[in-house]
């Protein structure tokens, strides 16, 4: 990568998980492209997306790993959980089975991430009210009991999509401010990019240089 100035202060790693067909890739696409991707095929393995957002005047680069929901990918996609600062756990409000499987997704997340990983539960397809199978209230209760953030969203019309990604970032940022995250540990899922060195310095614009400090 270039050694030029970073245009962000932090990198947060996210994962998106949940049963197949709940709309994980469509949520990611809506968030990064602000468009709805119709007839989205099943993801193969993992997909990657990125976007720079702003929280408390700090620029944060979100690196988002969107995992395939099909069972045959599940064993290997677990390796993407490690070091996630945020996890978006998605179900489909029109398919109860995808809601029933949440506890298994949650177990994986808890086992494979760190205790400070922020988990945001998303009930997707909120635009399909007429075929709803999971009520808002029961999902909210599940989220509260398990200490998860929660919103219903629609990758189709964009409702609450932005909010889910941003609120997760705000919570992670709050954890950093309160000293709950060790930024030096890779499993925190957060990398800090020191804000920009002066142009006069020829040697200090690579992040590695700070390791050469003899103090």
């Amino acid at each position: 990568m270039s050694s030029g100035p970073y245009n962000y202060n932090y990198i947060f790693k996210y994962i998106i998980i949940g049963d197949m067909g709940v709309g994980k890739s469509c949520l990611l696409h809506q968030f990064t492209e602000k468009k709805f991707m119709a007839n989205c095929p099943h993801t193969i393995g993992v997909e990657f997306g990125t976007r720079i957002i702003e929280v408390a005047d700090k620029k944060i680069k979100l690196q988002i790993w969107d995992t395939a929901g099909q069972e045959r990918f599940r064993a290997v996609t677990r390796s993407y959980y490690r070091g996630a600062a945020g996890a978006l756990m998605v179900y489909d409000i029109t398919r109860r089975s995808t809601y029933n499987h949440l506890s298994s997704w949650l177990t994986d997340t808890r086992n494979l991430t760190n205790p400070n990983t922020v988990i945001f539960l998303i009930g997707n397809k909120s635009d399909l009210e007429s075929t709803r199978e999971v009520t808002y209230e029961e999902a909210k209760q599940f989220a509260d009991e398990n200490g998860l953030m929660f919103a219903e969203a629609s990758a189709m019309n964009g409702q609450n999509v932005e909010e889910a990604f941003l609120e997760t970032a705000r919570k992670i940022y709050q954890n950093i401010q309160e000293g709950r995250l060790d930024l030096n540990a890779s499993e925190s899922g957060v990398q800090h990019r020191p804000s920009q060195p002066g142009r006069t310095s020829l040697t200090s614009d690579t992040p590695n240089n700070k390791d050469q400090c003899s103090c």
């Binding site: 993992v46 997909e47 990657f48 690196q63 064993a75 290997v76 677990r78 390796s79 490690r82």
Partner: peptide, 18 residues
């Protein structure tokens, strides 16, 4: 795309599936 092509499998996973 760069990220997808440069991320590396954790050694313990490679060993597990091997």
């Amino acid at each position: 795309m760069e990220e997808l092509l440069s991320e590396v499998v954790p050694q313990q996973d490679l060993e597990k599936f091997e």
